[in-house]
C-alpha cells in the first residue's frame, strides 16, 4: 500500500499518484535494462508520448499573456493594494476557486494517454478547461 504523506497544510491528494506524476518518474528514470543486457531483450512496443514540456514555448507565452489579460485588474485597481488582493486570492486558492484557469501541456498529454487506455480519469487530476472558472 502506498502511504501518502500529504497532511496538514500540504495539499491532500487521492491515495494514488496522478498519471503525470508517474510519467515523470518511470519513463526516463530508473535502471536502463539494455545497459546491462543485450542478448535476451524483447522489443515490446511501448506507447509513449513525449510529455516533457517545453517550458519556454510560444504557446506558453501566449497562455501567460492571455491569463494576464483575464486578471481582473479593476478589482485590484491601484486602490485596493496588492496585499489585500493577495489575501483574497489566498482564500480563493484555498477553496480551489482560483486554480487552474490555464492547464499545462502535461495535463493535455495525460488526457491523450487516458484516451488510449481507458477510464482512469476520475482518479487523476481532472483536467480543467480553460475559461470555465472565469468570473
Amino acid at each position: 500500500m502506498t502511504v501518502q504523506s500529504a497532511s496538514g497544510g500540504v495539499t491532500q491528494r487521492s491515495s494514488s499518484s496522478s498519471l503525470a506524476d508517474v510519467i515523470d518518474s518511470i519513463l526516463d528514470k530508473g535502471l536502463v535494462i539494455d545497459a546491462y543486457v543485450r542478448v535476451s531483450l524483447v522489443g515490446i512496443e511501448i506507447l509513449t508520448i513525449d510529455v516533457r514540456i517545453v517550458v519556454a514555448s510560444v504557446d506558453t507565452y501566449l497562455r501567460f499573456a492571455e491569463a494576464v489579460n483575464r486578471l481582473d485588474l479593476t478589482q485590484t485597481g491601484k486602490q485596493q493594494g496588492l496585499p489585500e488582493i493577495m489575501q483574497n486570492m489566498t482564500k480563493d486558492t484555498a477553496s480551489g476557486k482560483a486554480k487552474g484557469a490555464v492547464q499545462g501541456v502535461l495535463d493535455a498529454a495525460g488526457e491523450k494517454l487516458r484516451g488510449i487506455g481507458g477510464d482512469r480519469s476520475e482518479k487523476e487530476e481532472p483536467a480543467r478547461r480553460r475559461g470555465k472558472e472565469e468570473e
Binding site: L19, I26, E45, L47, L113, I116, G117, G118
Partner: peptide, 11 residues
C-alpha cells in the same frame, strides 16, 4: 503493447 495509463500506473 505497453504504455497505457494502466500499465504505467501498475509499474
Amino acid at each position: 503493447t505497453l504504455g497505457t495509463p494502466d500499465s504505467l500506473m501498475a509499474h
